[in-house]
Computed example of a mutant assay.
Amino acid sequence: MTYGQPQYGYTPPPKKSKAWLWITLTLVVVLIAGGVAFTGFVSPGFFKTKSDTASRATPEQLSQSFVNGVGEDRVSQLWCPVRSKRSYTFEQTMAVSEGAQLRTSAHQRAAQEYSAAFTAGGLTVGIAMIPGEGGWCVRDAKVGGEPEPLPSIETRPSPHPDVKTGEEAGTKFVDAVNARDIPAALSVLCAKVPDTTRDGVQQIIHGEARYTVDKTDVLTTAKQTILHLSGENDGVRKPGRIETEDDAEGGPCVASFAPDSD
């Protein structure tokens, strides 16, 4: 055999195509990208912009945070420490609603109070906002319209009024509740009533309840007076009851108040 001469009768094998490899790689990249996109935007949504549900430095921020929070069932940190009784019912209703959208932006209704309205679950809801510790907070939520503003957001009791009888003390208390005057209502309460009673009185006033005295029972031996009430609480007619301590130090005072039962 002579070296350097061509080898006759031999054909080199054809080169294998790599097209299938590039197609496979492309499909893998597409599948991975699609999976990341689904995870990021749908579950758990780390590509999504998180809704602000905490800002409350201004009424405008609070109202939007509240609307965002309703949509995510995260509004607990936006309520005032003492708020309307009906707001608890509202919170239960909104927990099963879907979606919320601001309808009326924050606007001033009183010296230190703003209101706003939004829609959620087919309902229109109004909220009332007042200054609180660390920013503004929601004191009331009303289905169907904006809450009526308070005459004042002051919560320090006025001086105890000069009353001579339990009936007079109870009547002054009813007048203060109807006027939505928190300091006046608290001024008639007995000094020893628990804080839960004081908070409960404010809860009723933060709403829009109104009462009238139907009947008064003076219990001379027990040194107590009972005032039987009729009224409207959150749009529903309900009875009410006030009990006074007629021989309290400093004068007759309200010892207990049942806003929706007698």
Rank of each mutant, 00 (worst) to 15 (best):
S87K: 02
Y88N: 09
T89A: 14
T89F: 05
F90A: 09
F90N: 02
F90P: 00
F90M: 12
E91T: 15
T93F: 03
T93H: 00
T93L: 05
A95F: 05
A95G: 03
S97A: 06
E98K: 12
E98C: 03
G99C: 09
G99Q: 09
G99F: 08
G99S: 13
A100T: 03
A100L: 06
A100K: 01
Q101Y: 01
Q101E: 15
R103T: 09
T104N: 04
S105V: 13
A106Y: 05
Q108V: 08
Q108L: 02
R109N: 01
R109L: 07
R109Q: 10
A110F: 02
A110E: 13
A111S: 12
A111N: 11
A111C: 02
Q112E: 08
E113R: 01
Y114C: 09
A117F: 06
F118R: 02
T119K: 13
T119E: 15
G122E: 12
G122T: 06
L123Q: 10
L123S: 14
T124K: 03
T124M: 12
V125P: 03
G126K: 12
I127D: 11
A128W: 00
M129H: 02
I130L: 11
I130A: 14
P131D: 07
P131A: 01
P131N: 10
G132K: 03
G132Q: 06
E133V: 12
G134F: 04
G135W: 00
G135Q: 10
C137I: 13
C137E: 13
V138D: 12
R139N: 14
A141N: 03
K142G: 05
G145L: 04
G145W: 04
E146N: 07
E146K: 04
P147R: 07
P147T: 00
P147F: 03
E148H: 01
E148Q: 14
E148M: 09
P151F: 07
P151M: 13
P151Q: 11
S152L: 10
S152V: 11
I153S: 04
I153A: 13
E154R: 12
T155P: 01
R156L: 13
P157I: 08
P157G: 03
S158H: 06
S158I: 03
S158R: 09
P159R: 00
H160G: 08
H160E: 08
P161R: 09
P161E: 06
D162R: 05
D162H: 06
D162C: 02
K164A: 15
K164W: 07
E167W: 00
E168H: 11
E168F: 00
A169D: 08
G170E: 14
T171K: 15
T171H: 08
K172T: 11
F173D: 14
F173G: 13
R180S: 15
D181R: 01
D181E: 09
I182E: 04
A184I: 02
